[in-house]
Write a protein that binds this DNA or RNA. Structure first.
Length: 400
DNA sequence: CCTAGCGGTAAGGGTAATAAGGATGA
DNA sequence: ATCATCCTTATTACCCTTACCGCTAG
C-alpha cells in the first residue's frame, strides 16, 4: 500500500534547494508538502540546464555575495542550484589545495596568506582570492566558503576542553566588554565564536543549570513547552522549535543543547508513539538503507536528513536517523575507502540478512514481551514483500 | 552626494565525537 | 548467569547559516 513511500522517499534535493524552509504550518503530522515542485533537483541530474547556464550559475555563486534571502529567491525563480550543509572531507581537501596553489602561485608567506584571510588593513583585501577558492568547491556560494576558511585557518582554533581559568577569564571579559566577541576573543585567546558558544551553552545560567538524568517533571515540562510552541501554534513539531527560548522557558535549568537533544532523541518519539518508547530494530535499519539508496546521492553529506522521516515511519528524528546511518556505515570494514554507493550496496545485503527478528515480529502467534512490537508491524508489514521484490537498484531512477 | 553591495561581526540553528549505562540474546 | 553487542542517553566542543550594518567604490 504505502510501499511507494518507502521506495521513493523524498526526492532528495539536498544539493540544491534545501532551504530550511520553515515548514508551512501543516497539521500535527500531516505529510510535509514537498518543499519543491519536485523538479529542480532531479532535473539537474537529468539535464535541465545547458552547461552554459550552469557555468553562469557557478560564476554567480563564486563572485556575488548573495544574501540568504536572495539565494532562496533565486532557487525558486530560476532554479539556482547550490550546496548547503557540512563540508565533506573532499571539499575540505579541495579548499586546502586551492589555497595552497594560490599561495605558491603568488609566492606568499604564511603571514601574507594570513593577512589575506584576516586582513587588518583595508588595502590588503583580495576579492579574487575568495572567488578562486570558491570555484574549487562548486556549487558552494562564496559566503559559505568565506566562513568555512576563516574558521579553519584561524590561529586560535581547535583548543579543546575549556579550563576553569579560561572560563573565569571569559566571564570577566564579558563583564568588562559585553558580548563583543571579537574583543572578548582577544582577551581570552579563543575564537570569537567559541567564546560565544562557551558562554551561551555553559556559562549563562550556570548556577541554575542542572545536569544528568532528567526528572519526570522536567520531561513533562519540556514536552509541554515544545508542543505549546509548535502544534498549538500550527507549526511543525520537528522543525519550528526555538531552543534558546525553550531553555529560557525551562527557567534556565537546562541549556538549549540539553533541551534539543532530549527532545529529538528521546521525548519526540515518545510523543509520536503514544507514550511508549520504540526501539531501533533491524526493520528500521532496512527501511533507512532503502530510503537512502533511493536518494541516489553521491555522498552522504548531500543527504538532507530532515526529509527522510515520513508520516508512516516518523518515530525517528532526523538526527537519530543520521546517527544510525553513521554507526551502520562504520560497522563496515574499510568504509573509509569506499564510495557511498558501495556502502549502501553492502548494507542493503547485510541488513536484509537479519530477517528473523523482523519476521518474528510479524508473528502475532508469539507476542514478544513488550507492546512496542505492535507498532513495528506497521512498517515491518511491508518489508518481506519489498525484500522479495528485489531489483532495488535502479528502477525509478528516471521519471519520464 | 548617493547607493549598491562587500565583508566583518554577532546571533541563530545544528551536529560529531565520546562516554557510560541499559537491553538483548547467544 | 555471563558476556558480547547493540541501543539509549547525556555531555560538550565544534560547525554552518542568517541577520545586521558600517563602509567604500563607483
Amino acid at each position: 500500500m504505502d510501499m511507494s513511500k518507502l521506495a521513493k522517499g523524498p526526492v532528495d534535493p539536498s544539493i540544491a534547494a534545501n532551504m530550511s524552509a520553515f515548514a508551512p504550518p501543516t497539521g500535527a503530522f500531516a505529510p510535509p508538502l514537498p518543499p519543491h515542485p519536485l523538479g529542480t533537483s532531479s532535473l539537474l541530474v537529468l539535464q535541465p540546464f545547458s552547461t552554459c547556464q550552469r557555468v553562469k550559475q557557478l560564476d554567480l555563486l563564486a563572485t556575488k555575495w548573495l544574501s540568504a534571502r536572495k539565494l532562496a529567491e533565486m532557487v525558486e525563480t530560476e532554479g539556482l542550484v547550490y550546496k548547503k550543509g557540512k563540508f565533506s572531507a573532499t571539499e575540505e581537501r579541495q579548499v586546502r589545495e586551492a589555497i595552497e596553489s594560490h599561495k605558491t602561485a603568488n609566492n606568499l608567506s604564511d603571514a601574507q596568506l594570513h593577512e589575506i584571510i584576516f586582513p587588518k588593513d583595508e588595502k590588503n583585501k583580495d576579492a579574487e582570492f575568495w572567488t578562486r577558492i570558491t570555484q574549487a568547491v562548486p556549487p558552494r556560494p562564496i559566503v559559505a566558503v568565506y566562513h568555512f576558511v576563516r574558521r579553519k585557518y584561524h590561529p586560535l582554533g581547535q583548543k579543546g576542553a575549556w579550563k576553569a581559568a579560561e572560563d573565569a577569564a571569559l566571564k570577566q571579559a564579558i563583564a568588562d566588554l559585553g558580548q563583543a566577541w571579537e574583543k572578548v576573543s582577544a582577551r581570552v585567546g579563543r575564537m570569537a565564536s567559541d567564546c560565544r558558544d562557551r558562554y551561551r551553552n555553559h556559562l549563562v545560567d550556570r548556577d541554575t543549570r542542572s545536569t544528568g538524568a532528567w526528572s519526570k517533571e522536567e520531561e513533562d515540562e519540556l514536552t509541554r513547552i515544545v508542543t505549546d510552541m509548535t502544534i498549538k501554534q500550527g507549526r511543525d513539531i520537528d522543525n519550528d522549535v526555538f531552543w534558546s527560548r525553550v531553555s529560557q522557558l525551562m527557567g534556565g535549568r537546562r541549556g538549549r543543547q540539553q533541551c534539543r537533544i532530549k527532545w529529538t532523541d528521546s521525548l519526540s518519539k515518545l510523543v509520536k508513539n503514544d507514550g511508549t518508547k520504540p526501539r531501533w530494530s533491524p526493520t528500521d535499519a532496512f527501511i533507512l538503507i532503502h530510503k537512502i539508496d533511493s536518494l541516489k546521492v553521491n555522498d552522504d553529506t548531500e543527504i538532507d536528513w530532515k526529509l527522510l522521516p515520513d508520516p508512516d515511519w516518523n518515530l525517528w528524528s532526523a538526527h537519530t536517523l543520521q546517527r544510525r546511518w553513521l554507526t551502520m556505515k562504520r560497522g563496515i570494514k574499510g568504509y573509509e575507502e569506499m564510495t557511498h554507493q558501495d556502502i549502501v550496496d553492502i548494507l542493503r545485503v547485510k541488513k536484509s540478512l537479519a530477517p528473523e527478528s523482523a519476521s518474528s515480529a510479524l508473528d502475532s502467534s508469539k507476542p514478544p514481551t513488550k507492546e512496542r512490537r505492535k507498532r513495528k508491524i506497521t512498517s515491518a508489514g511491508e518489508v518481506p514483500e519489498e525484500m522479495t521484490k528485489s531489483a532495488p537498484t535502479v528502477e525509478d531512477s528516471d521519471p519520464e
